[in-house]
Amino acid sequence: MDEKKIALRKFVLENYLFTEDEGALKDDDSFLDNGILDSMGVLELISFLEEELSTSVEGDEVTPDNLDSINKVLAFIETRSH
């Protein structure tokens, strides 16, 4: 999971916040409330999960409960791996 977390954080930091500063994003920061992701960003995040982290996302799983912060995405990946 650590590797996945590192990859996910790097992806979000570089692609949406355009920074390498690890302090710019906390693991519980809401992507929507903080304006980090818009609808295009969500599509990109899903592609990343599918292509880089081998985690497929079904239509009804595209919800803030699953995809709205680093921790929520990691928890979602975890459920999918079981």
């Binding site: 929507l32 818009d38 609808s39 295009m40 969500v42 239509g59 595209v62």
Partner: peptide
């Protein structure tokens, strides 16, 4: 033509 993800549209419509 809005490029909305499938799933819960309202959440993303609301965010914008």
């Amino acid at each position: 033509y809005l490029n909305l993800p499938s799933g819960n549209h309202n959440v993303y419509l609301k965010s914008f």
